[in-house]
Design a protein around this nucleic acid. Structure first.
Lengths: 155, 155
DNA sequence: CCTCTATGGTAAACTCTGTTTACTACCAGA
DNA sequence: TCTGGTAGTAAACAGAGTTTACCATAGAGG
């Protein structure tokens, strides 16, 4: 599944860019890179849809329905994702609901390692951005995005 | 106490957030809103995949293959998207390639109106963000994202 | 104690969207 | 003229998600 963008920069003035593209393009670039590096690091089989599960704050100890809600998808879709992740050896789900208990998703060792690696990759990306923009400006960027996060704008 | 991503804020410290989520979440929120408002404004039928065509700098006067490249998808997939957009009355493609000329995508009136509306919606979102963050900080945010855009980080 | 209802999970059919594979048409250059 | 490259198209296929429907459990009220 190639999400690759064009390889050249469009001949566009930055000041014309609207906030939509300014956020979307780097966000997608990060996601592509995350998946690529995860696979390259030996965590094979992980693809874009799996990221809906692996992303912060992670699925460990959480019920499938909650994960579905977080990811903004149906329980059924999430369930298949979890089945896939289970087949790949990244998570396990506790016993069937017929036993009366709610199911709980748990990381396997491999799953936890993948999650740790994911955070590492993101930290690496942050270091690169920090080097490119300068530490002060990168910190400012994160701070501003944090204020957006805390605001009602994104809900 | 389920913490839903879409309706409530997760109990998370902003400083723990990594750049991936900080960009992804608002980018997705904007996209959802864009599609919703476009539909509500009478531009029915437009869905998420169509946004790969309608997004800046727009398809007008461009060949299908170039649009495919821009969107990071195969020419076949783009072609079907364009067929869909054509059925919905937003674009037209010039005569078949058997006629020896390269096909060119053109907006219909409706298509151009949708594109104009899209920019309007985005400008509206920018105004809201500007009000929330303050004009100076919003300008700073766009400037910083522009520097990311211009850097090799996102390619 | 029994039923009714809400909740959580599961399963199958369907739909949408993209890729892969393969084909046709035109064009420019040896 | 032949040949390789470009542009577009078509059909088969794969995947990912939703809808519809169903089962099991737990808790509340009669």
């Amino acid at each position: 599944m190639s999400m690759s963008f064009s390889k050249e920069k469009p001949p566009v003035k930055t000041k014309d860019m609207l906030i939509g593209a300014l956020l979307r393009v780097p966000a997608e670039a990060i996601l592509r890179r995350l998946i690529g590096e995860l696979n390259a690091a030996g965590f094979e089989g992980l693809s874009l849809p799996h990221m809906a599960v692996l992303r912060f704050p992670g699925p460990d100890g959480v019920r499938p329905g909650v994960l579905a809600e977080r990811a903004g998808m149906s329980k059924q879709a999430m369930n298949r994702l979890l089945g896939s992740l289970e087949d790949l050896g990244y998570v396990v789900r506790s016993g069937a609901p017929s036993e009366g208990r709610a199911r709980i998703v748990r990381f396997t060792k491999r799953g936890r390692a993948a999650y740790v690696k994911e955070v590492e990759i993101l930290r690496g990306i942050e270091r690169e951005w920090s080097a490119e923009l300068g530490p002060r400006d990168f910190a400012r960027l994160k701070l501003l995005l944090g204020r957006v996060w805390d605001s009602p704008l994104v809900r």
